[in-house]
Amino acid sequence: MLTKRIIPCLDIKNGRTVKGINFLNLIDAGDPVELAKIYANEGADELVFLDISATEEKRKTLLDLVERVAQQVNIPFTVGGGISSVEDVELLLKSGADKVSINSSAVKNPDLINQLSDKFGSQCVVVAIDAKQIDGKWKVHLVGGKVATEMDLFDWAKEVEQRGAGEILFTSMDNDGTKNGFANEALAQLSNLVNIPIIASGGAGNTQHFIDCFKESNADATLAASVFHFKEIEINQLKNELRKNNISVRI
């Protein structure tokens, strides 16, 4: 039986992890590769690396990092952040990334989704969507949530599926950072609407939130950052709890 996935997200700036400083045994706590190996050993099912570097010379640093991760980590990983062209993706995949995640660039140029899925296959194209509710309607936001658009979350989700996205990574900005749980209602609606896997993001604060998300939303995976980085939740313990609650996970 296909299991539900637990995905830690690592924020990367200039080749270093931004969070994740609570791992005491690390020789270099800022080294994303060290952190990735720990997560893999703790039972993470995949990893997401989100590059938040601002500079232009970041690309080379990021590619070096991707190659080091691919060399040393034996589970799949996705790379996102600032990807805007077929060439960007080609370099990342050639360096050993399994999937890429695109966000604002897909909104600005929706045809990029078609181009990527035609060239590399939909299995490696994750479209990340950030949205929040404005007057009761879920509206897509860009540039890390800073810029609002008129686009409806569900319309956009349907469109990215039709254009060849292999997965949707939905972050609820209303929930992100609150530690009050995932946006289960919107996730359930998304999961009913499209026939590709949905990764839930934003709002994880405790183990019960993951249980609720899988039970109420039918999401295929949950993504979280700080609860894992600050060791508030350990992945193997989380998975034991999920299994006790009859949620199928890999242990």
Partner: peptide, 13 residues
């Protein structure tokens, strides 16, 4: 078949 989400992505036994 479309009774499943496609692609299948993840860990299966």
């Amino acid at each position: 078949g479309t009774e499943n989400k496609i692609p299948q992505i993840g860990w299966n036994t």
